[in-house]
């Protein structure tokens, strides 16, 4: 099933990006994001996930390639226009919650709305609503340094959701959290996005996280890859691998992991 192209709210074609020190980050990534879907961008560390999100959200300009948002070219915009687009239509969640330490929780969550010129009262109402939904309404008057990391991350999610962005970019939103907190944060994020029809682009290196998404785009060394289903591994090979790893119990998992990784790496570049 392929959605018609005009259903894509954001699409990118052949993005190339190189860091200032000359190291390549993206080499020819293309993708389309449909309206209201949750798209996971997965891949190991250093595979260009963050750079892809930064290019798509207009934080940086790709050296080559195109980014279109709702049939408007993002790659040709000047910095001021991109800034306004980011403020009005996009939300962003950092891997670690960076809140303004001087403001309390609800002021932090209401800040993007106030920056857009919404009145203080309405911004506060919207922010409080989202904080309640994310189970931190009782801490709305605390300051960030009094909260725990997972609570701060939920505040930054509320801050990203409060202005009701068209697209929410979440760059490894659960990276610094324990697993219990991670599940909670992800659940609230995905539920909120689905109930409000917010498109989410979620960068993650975690397969469990990616499984929450509607669709996954895999990146490897700055290229989009499709994992090809390899023919089943012959019995003998598996046994041999098991034998070598059977000495230490803990090693067995690692052996299986390298095996799976090796197969995943045998993939085709698109």
């Amino acid at each position: 099933m392929v959605a018609p192209p005009d259903n894509d709210v954001l699409w990118a074609r052949a993005l190339h990006f190189q860091h200032n020190d000359g190291s390549p980050a993206l080499s020819g990534v293309s993708l389309g994001v449909r309206e209201g879907e949750i798209l996971a961008v997965s891949g190991p560390r250093g595979s260009g996930k963050t750079t892809l999100l930064r290019c798509l959200s207009g934080l940086v300009r790709p050296q080559r390639g195109e980014v279109w948002f709702n049939s408007v070219p993002v790659h040709t915009m000047g910095p001021l226009t991109r800034e306004r687009l980011r403020r009005d239509r996009f939300g962003w969640i950092d891997p670690a919650p960076v809140l303004v330490p001087e403001l309390n929780v609800w002021e932090n969550a209401a800040l993007p709305l106030m920056l857009r010129g919404t009145s203080r009262r309405r911004a506060k109402t919207a922010a409080m609503e989202w904080l309640e939904r994310l189970d931190i309404g009782d801490r709305a008057r605390r300051h960030p340094h009094e909260l725990r990391q997972s609570e701060r991350q939920r505040v930054s999610i509320a801050r990203a959701l409060a202005p009701a962005p068209t697209i929410l970019f979440a760059d490894e939103p659960t990276a610094p959290l324990y697993r219990a907190d991670r599940a909670h944060v992800l659940r609230t994020l995905t539920t909120a996005a689905r109930s409000h029809g917010i498109t989410v682009i979620l960068a993650t290196h975690d397969a469990a996280t990616a499984s929450l998404a509607d669709r996954t785009v895999s990146l490897l060394d700055g290229r989009g890859v499709n994992t090809v289903h390899l023919p089943p591994v012959p019995e003998k090979e598996t046994e041999a691998a098991a034998e070598t790893a059977a000495d230490e119990g803990a090693e067995a998992d690692a052996g299986a992991g390298t095996d799976a990784e090796g197969r995943a790496a045998c993939s085709l570049s698109v």
Binding site: E83, F90, V100
Partner: peptide, 16 residues
């Protein structure tokens, strides 16, 4: 500097 960078990522205008 960290907070300022995060605000800019949020789309806070540099003029503000």
């Amino acid at each position: 500097a960290d907070t300022t960078a995060a605000l800019l990522r949020l789309g806070a205008p540099a003029t503000t």
